[in-house]
């Protein structure tokens, strides 16, 4: 009995302290496995590049009636202009060149295209998150909304976004709405759902005793929301925002794919594939991935700071 009680006391006391101590050390500990995996991926990628680009080199050589040594073959597979699979250093060089090699106003600048994608992503993310939070508040307060909205929200996510994105773009363009807004709408479409699901869960997270306390003080619905439901939902909110921002980026890029788009990372992807510019495709892909990682990291940092200040860090 005594032992059990000590253990509960200890376990209720430790997590925040452990979290405080552990954070700095964790970064060092997690770096090694991450780097190992990265190295393995790069090696595998080089091997794949050689294997996939070699037929074209042999073909060219055969046509010219030459023979190639293994050394020549290796070098040639990694220096093609339109390889089947560009080598990592080619993609890295293209990325570097796209970011630093030209003025940010240039049509080939990845900074410019990245910003266009980012701004639509952020707009869609803000829109989608706000919608998700508002709907979640409605759902936890109204049984009717719970029963009526949830099925539609789920249904909305089963529609293939690739199929309706062009329609949204075309329909909006026909009424004169172009540019950021149509893309942001598609992005909001994808990002509201994780926030909705996370917030419904989070707003219902407080335990019954905490609701009973509020009831005994005769707190009204708004006060329960503000003082209890909303603060307890924050860990869920941040977790779902991470998913939502990634979804928002995908939504924006999909919105940039339909014919006619000339700006944004999605447009770079598309034009790259028109002209067989595989290096351009891959560098746009990586730019998008880096953007996504940065955004997710940013939300994670805000979450850590906020939750730690609130004593909710774990």
């Amino acid at each position: 009995m005594g032992r059990v009680m000590t253990e509960t006391t200890v376990s209720t006391l430790t997590p925040p302290r452990a979290a405080r101590r552990g954070w700095a050390g964790q970064a060092g500990r997690s770096a090694l496995p991450v780097l190992t995996v990265l190295a393995a991926i790069v090696v595998a990628w080089y091997l794949a590049a050689v294997w996939m680009n070699a037929p074209w080199v042999r073909d060219q050589a055969a046509r010219a009636g030459e023979t190639v040594t293994t050394g020549q073959l290796l070098r040639a597979t990694m220096a093609q202009e339109r390889p089947v699979l560009p080598a990592p250093h080619q993609v890295a060089a293209a990325l570097w060149e796209g970011v630093t090699g030209q003025s940010v106003t240039s049509k080939r600048s990845l900074v410019r295209h990245g910003w266009i994608t980012l701004s639509a992503t952020l707009a869609g993310f803000a829109l989608g998150s706000a919608a998700g939070i508002l709907l979640a508040v409605g759902i936890v307060h109204s049984r009717v909304m719970d029963l009526s909205i949830m099925p539609w929200a789920v249904a909305s996510q089963t529609i293939p976004i690739l199929a309706i994105a062009p329609m949204v773009i075309v329909v909006l363009a026909s009424v004169g709405v172009t540019g950021l807004l149509p893309k942001a709408l598609i992005s909001a479409w994808l990002s509201f759902f994780p926030v909705l699901v996370g917030m419904v869960k989070g707003l219902r997270a407080p335990d019954p005793m905490q609701f009973d306390l509020m009831r005994s003080w005769n707190a009204n619905g708004g006060q329960v929301l503000r003082f209890l439901r909303f603060p307890s939902s924050l860990p869920w909110l941040f977790a779902s925002l991470k998913v939502a921002i990634a979804a928002a980026l995908v939504g924006t890029i999909v919105g940039e794919l339909p014919a006619g788009a000339t700006q944004g990372l999605g447009a770079r992807l598309l034009s790259g594939s028109y002209y067989g510019q595989t290096i351009q495709i891959w560098s746009a892909l990586f730019a998008a991935a880096i953007l996504a990682a940065g955004l997710v990291w940013l939300i994670g940092a805000v979450a850590r700071l906020t939750l730690r200040r609130m004593g909710l860090a774990r």
């Binding site: 335990d207 005793m209 905490q210 009973d212 306390l213 003082f227 603060p231 609130m310 004593g311 909710l312």
Partner: peptide, 11 residues
């Protein structure tokens, strides 16, 4: 009302 468990708000 004082409940059987403290029920303080951690934040």
């Amino acid at each position: 009302y004082v409940f059987q468990a403290p029920g303080l708000y951690p934040w």
